[in-house]
Amino acid sequence: MKIKTRDRDDIAILDISGEITIGQGDVQLRKEINELVNNKEIVNIILNLSKVSFIDSSGIGEIVRSYTTVQKHGGKLKLMGLESKVRDLLTITQLITVFECFEGEEEAVASYK
């Protein structure tokens, strides 16, 4: 898994590609989120999942953990670019009711204003 982090309008956008699975992507995502929240007072984060090819329950759990971590620091974590297989898993686990999900970046960024 690869994560590229960029800033846009004071929002950290994490472009994630590859597989988010146990012992690999999940650890990397946790590290990246912790670095972001520890370096800023309030941090808003968008996870761009459009290039995620496979995600397991540990990966889903790490997104949940990221969501609660960001929330504890006074920010909001949102998702964008969900492929149908990722969306299906969020629907089955009912996490689709928890996360704010957007098709594209403009829409996701605008939602913070």
Partner: peptide, 14 residues
């Protein structure tokens, strides 16, 4: 719902 673990077997079953 906001637990970070406990979805593996649930997903396999579903």
């Amino acid at each position: 719902l906001l637990e970070p673990t406990g979805r593996g077997i649930f997903l396999a079953q579903k």
